[in-house]
Simulated assay, not measured.
Amino acid sequence: MNGIINVIKPPLITSFRVVELIKRKFRLRHIGHLGVLDPIATGLLQIAVGSATKMFDYFTSLDRAYRVELLLGIATDTQDSAGKPVKISEEVSLKGLEEVINSFKGEIIQIPPMYSTLHYQGKRLYELAREGIEVPRQPRKVLIKSIDILETRDGKYPRVILDVVCQRGAYIRTLCNDIGEKLGVGGHMASLIRTRIGSIDLTKAYPLTEILEKGSSITDYFMPWILLDELKKVELIVKKQRDNFIKGKPVQLFRALSSKKEFVSVWYGGVCIGVGKVSQDVLSPIASERVNVD
């Protein structure tokens, strides 16, 4: 069994716990997530089963879209609503908000938060943070492709609803913290929903509760490979090529397609039958749709 499951993760559960629950429910061996979501966050979490785990690099290279709620006036040690306040402003103004937010578009520098899964000398940063230990973190470049203000909500501590599109490696919590710092009032991420990865959005995902309570076979929740419309298409010409692909055997193509290894969607007779990786004129299968070989 090889495939991708698009899960709607509920809040207050780790991505690793989601993987463990699905693994136990369906008695799976090879399974993993394709990009972590913070425990307080909800939304799209992609889970790879079997050989589909080989597509980690592809899925993590795709743009990610988020709906985020920024609360201004209170900064926390975790940079989200789960943390303890470390700064509270008595007066909070939204003056200059749009200008400040626009300054975070494009390539920016972030310092990863202490409460993260990054490693430092063999331990995860969040483990050190829970012990009250703070260590130096290397600033790094991240790309914020777009950030749009959808709504502002007045109050003693105003809230700002944002849509953010970014690439892998960007911390939305840190983005919220840094916006608050630049405004001079502090801020933190009050809530977060991942709404899209590449072209896959929440309409193509299943709630975790449905999978765990109603699911009888994990294959019922596998994403059709045709949805990966960003992939280059490889059309197989003869039936023997199709049969070898479905059996998991390397397929000899009639011409070289790529000088480097590249993920592709695989088609036969106008139908998408799976995904693979092509190098020169050899196609290596990764996963196929359930197609009979006769």
Rank of each mutant, 00 (worst) to 15 (best):
residue 51 S to E: 10
residue 240 K to G: 06
residue 163 D to Y: 07
residue 44 L to E: 09
residue 264 V to M: 14
residue 157 Y to H: 15
residue 80 D to K: 06
residue 228 L to S: 10
residue 90 E to W: 06
residue 118 L to N: 01
residue 199 S to A: 14
residue 216 S to A: 14
residue 266 V to A: 01
residue 225 W to P: 00
residue 224 P to F: 07
residue 191 S to T: 13
residue 58 Y to K: 00
residue 84 K to W: 01
residue 71 L to R: 06
residue 111 I to A: 11
residue 219 T to W: 14
residue 210 E to R: 10
residue 14 T to N: 02
residue 80 D to I: 09
residue 56 F to H: 14
residue 181 E to Q: 15
residue 2 N to E: 04
residue 5 I to T: 04
residue 247 K to H: 14
residue 72 L to G: 05
residue 256 A to V: 06
residue 268 Y to I: 02
residue 267 W to M: 13
residue 46 Q to I: 05
residue 245 F to Y: 00
residue 182 K to F: 08
residue 26 F to M: 15
residue 16 F to H: 13
residue 231 L to K: 00
residue 206 Y to K: 08
residue 293 V to S: 13
residue 76 T to D: 12
residue 292 N to R: 05
residue 192 L to E: 11
residue 151 E to G: 12
residue 160 V to M: 12
residue 101 I to K: 04
residue 54 K to E: 00
residue 19 V to W: 02
residue 11 P to Q: 12
residue 101 I to M: 06
residue 135 V to N: 04
residue 282 V to K: 11
residue 38 D to E: 12
residue 56 F to V: 10
residue 233 K to H: 05
residue 274 G to N: 03
residue 56 F to M: 13
residue 263 F to G: 08
residue 214 K to N: 09
residue 136 P to W: 03
residue 274 G to R: 01
residue 51 S to T: 04
residue 74 I to S: 09
residue 147 I to N: 02
residue 39 P to C: 13
residue 212 L to R: 15
residue 59 F to C: 07
residue 156 K to M: 05
residue 102 N to F: 11
residue 29 R to F: 08
residue 70 L to P: 12
residue 201 D to H: 11
residue 174 T to Q: 07
residue 70 L to E: 07
residue 16 F to E: 09
residue 80 D to N: 10
residue 100 V to H: 10
residue 231 L to T: 07
residue 111 I to K: 14
residue 71 L to A: 10
residue 292 N to E: 15
residue 244 N to K: 10
residue 9 K to Y: 14
residue 85 P to S: 10
residue 293 V to M: 12
residue 199 S to E: 15
residue 249 K to C: 02
residue 281 D to S: 15
residue 207 P to H: 14
residue 43 G to D: 03
residue 1 M to L: 06
residue 218 I to V: 15
residue 256 A to G: 13
residue 137 R to G: 07
residue 137 R to M: 06
residue 199 S to F: 08
residue 173 R to M: 08
residue 182 K to S: 03
residue 192 L to Q: 13
residue 113 P to R: 00
residue 253 L to Y: 02
